[in-house]
Simulated scan of single mutants.
Amino acid sequence: MVHQNAILVETIRKENRTQKLFTNFSINPFTQSYALTGKVNSIHDALMEAGEEDETMKRAIAQSRAPPTRKYIRPQTESQEIGWISQPLLTDQDHNDRRLFHNRQKTEIVKIKEKEWELNPAGSSRK
């Protein structure tokens, strides 16, 4: 009995060391809230109908609905690293620069087949 009580006391002491008591509660902004009708003859509902809005709650909801690139500075997971920077590196592309711009080129075989299809669209077999 003494050993079991000592183990119980040690377990409770460890739990009390790691636990925190939270007294500041709020609505989870990441879940969708639905509008519910209020109580009959409630003063609080009458004030809400007059146009009173909680600005901090509106900001929390707006931030929860924002894409991750606007919420966080850096990716939070490895999966978010792919595509995190989605803007192209070069904004003005010079189409004359052959290092960066590879235009579609037609070979002689493609040109011959295109001419054949232009002359006889129904008779040629496209393979």
Rank of each mutant, 00 (worst) to 15 (best):
M1W: 00
H3E: 14
N5E: 12
A6S: 08
V9S: 10
E10I: 11
I12S: 02
K14T: 14
E15G: 13
E15T: 14
E15V: 13
N16H: 11
T18C: 07
L21C: 03
L21G: 04
L21W: 00
F22K: 01
N24K: 02
F25S: 01
F25I: 03
S26M: 04
I27T: 01
N28F: 00
N28D: 12
P29E: 00
F30G: 08
F30T: 14
T31C: 07
Q32E: 15
S33G: 06
S33F: 00
A35E: 10
L36F: 09
T37D: 10
T37G: 09
T37V: 11
S42Y: 03
S42T: 03
I43E: 07
I43D: 04
I43T: 06
H44A: 15
D45S: 13
A46P: 01
A46V: 07
A46I: 11
L47E: 07
L47V: 09
L47C: 10
L47M: 12
M48H: 12
M48I: 15
E49V: 06
E49M: 08
A50M: 08
A50N: 09
A50K: 06
E52D: 12
E52C: 07
E52M: 11
D54G: 03
T56W: 00
T56G: 08
R59S: 10
A60F: 07
A60Q: 13
I61A: 07
I61E: 12
A62F: 03
A62S: 13
A62G: 05
S64T: 06
R65S: 15
A66Q: 06
P67H: 05
P68N: 15
T69P: 00
R70N: 11
R70S: 13
K71H: 04
Y72I: 09
Y72S: 15
I73E: 13
R74M: 11
T77Q: 02
E78D: 13
E78C: 05
G83I: 03
W84G: 06
W84P: 01
I85P: 03
I85T: 05
I85R: 07
Q87S: 12
Q87T: 10
P88L: 01
P88Y: 07
L90M: 05
L90K: 10
T91F: 04
N96Y: 03
N96V: 00
D97I: 05
D97C: 03
R98I: 05
R98W: 02
L100V: 12
F101Y: 14
F101P: 01
F101R: 04
F101L: 04
K106A: 07
K106E: 14
T107K: 01
V110D: 14
K111M: 10
K113W: 01
E114H: 01
W117Q: 15
G123C: 07
G123T: 08
S124I: 15
S125R: 14
K127F: 13
